[in-house]
Design a protein around this nucleic acid. Structure first.
Lengths: 197, 197, 197, 197
DNA sequence: CATGAATGAGTGTTCATTCAT
DNA sequence: TATGAATGAACACTCATTCAT
């Protein structure tokens, strides 16, 4: 009678540890041995749940994205238009330690994705999802008269998305230069410019 | 008399190839053997010019920064205020292949810098330099009456710097989504919002 | 259940081969590849049992010392005074192949120890141990009236210890000049001079 | 008109530096670059005077031996029998810094000679030379009635030679344990036992 | 299912040697 | 002669992967 294991639950449990290791030590520190140690399992155990190291890494990225998306549902509940947009943008900034980890992970995979189409696709999907939501919020805001005339939702979305990713990168690279307060102020400054005069 | 080599010139020559390899294949592909092959020299030859691989990598980053800064001098010659600001921001976008290489290199080192204070310092200096120039241009623009009342140079600078880094990252990650034209439009949209009504 | 290995037993097994390689080919010949080949394992396997090459080498020296000290217990069982002293000194001479290997190993590490405090300490401990035993035997002999009046145990010990190390070195360097018989004769000549007239 | 160089004089000048480097840093530290740096010449210059690194090393050993032998002539001038013997033995102990360098060099080459017949031959010749002188002095002493009846010159010589080499090794390995005074005392203790009662 | 021992190709680095100048 | 730039094989070590238990 074999022991029955919930593979998906176990994978998520393992990936949580993997995400922490990568965000902390980078991909150089994420050796299979280090991951095994940190998860509390053996290297061989990881082999049961993942096809190899590449699978571990891409799964870790996808796992982080799932958590982020699950959070959006909470954050945006009952919000609309600019309020929803603001909540969404702020949620994507490294304003606390869990999100700093997410940002570090994301940046690590940005450079990795440059040479790995598989990783790039995972990131593209997440980015597309966020972009769709931003555009939808902007359209909602426009309908509600919250936007200045002539505001193009797509162009504005690209600007806002670039802003939060740039702010995120700067915040984790130069924490002295940008505090959580600065990040929020930057987003609010930008949003203020969207409103009608 | 033996052949005398200009060490600095040779280093720059080698680093030009190193930058290309890293931007093309990432740091994983930048093995000493690959770098030797690509530069056209032996692994031992690299040892004459660099203290080790870490020195090659940080020198490559510093070398790229020097080239960028040298270009600024040209780009900004005779420009002031918003015009200088616009030239500076556009120069920092991956609008052509050489600058796409620069952007890819920069992104690769962003993630590396997260765990390497030495690299982070090299990047911080470059970022500081750009930040100073952006702030100076904004102050110049304010003095010239090119800015809307109440525009804070520092907060604006942080927003603009984040914007161009975010746009750069998105452009090299999702080239289908953002063309050179889109990048310029995003910057111009943002700059338009700085002018007085 | 995986194969469980007794790490200490495996280390000793590996070190036995390492000692042979070093004594045979010197430290130059003791590359990690050569040691792996000679032990019958892969280079990676050695990494499981030793922290690195330096650890392999110092462990090999310590292992040889342990074997020698274990042998003393046998050799000296039931012996006292001059008889114990003689047994101890003879045991430290390269009178047969196993001890020639020990001597060669020791000499190889003498020169290595000149520039490596860690190795020097390992050798110092072993030398101190032997020195203590020699002095103790001499004091025993003095008490038993086996020594000429005025024989100083410490000074005598130093002379005897120097003698056996010098004889050992000469025996392995110039085997034609010094046979096993010559070595024993030299020790006996020296001991004869310790007895009362 | 080519520059004329006294090859032999230049070789000796270079070897003096080589000996110092080896005695100081061991053979590991005696890279061709290090030797070139220390001699004040380029690596290529050494190639003019030596056939290769092996030639440099064996020449350095031979050079040290020449210096030692030249010194014997001075030391033993006008001495005979036991007095000559004593002078000879003391000259071979590391009683001052120059001779500590000689001893370190000798020990380094002992282990190297174990696997290199060429080096072993160089050392054997030197050892043979010293051995001949010791035996000759002993015979002289015997003729002069300075030795106890039944003293065999060859067996005694082997003992004395082993003693000084063992003392030398111990003195450089464990300088705390054996001072210059101790070394002299050990030799004098041994010599005292040679005299007739 | 789970283990961790074992593999061996690949890494960065060193260094004796060669040779055009 | 003398230089020092250049080579490339050899080194110690790491690590993703495999697999007998």
């Amino acid at each position: 009678m074999p022991k029955i294991v919930d593979h998906e639950a176990r994978r998520r449990e393992l990936l949580d540890a993997v995400v922490r290791v990568i965000a902390e030590d980078g991909l150089e520190g994420a050796t299979t041995r280090a991951l095994a140690r940190e998860t509390g399992w053996s290297t061989g155990a990881l082999a049961h749940y993942f096809a190899g190291k590449a699978d571990i890494l891409s799964s870790a990225l996808a796992f982080s994205h799932e958590r982020i998306k699950a959070r959006w549902a909470d954050q945006l509940d009952g919000l609309h238009g600019l309020a929803a947009l603001r909540a969404l943008l702020l949620d994507n900034l490294p304003l606390d330690e869990p999100r700093r980890i997410e940002t570090r992970l994301e940046m690590i995979f940005w450079s990795q994705a440059l040479g790995d189409p598989g990783l790039r696709e995972i990131q593209r999907e997440e980015a597309q999802d966020l972009r769709d939501r931003v555009i939808a919020s902007l359209k909602e805001a426009r309908t509600a008269g919250e936007l200045a005339a002539g505001t193009d939702p797509v162009r504005t979305a690209e600007r806002l998305l670039a802003l939060i990713d740039g702010l995120s990168a700067h915040a984790v690279l130069y924490p002295d230069r940008l505090t959580a307060k600065d990040l929020k102020a930057a987003v609010d400054d930008e949003l203020a410019r969207l409103s009608p005069p």
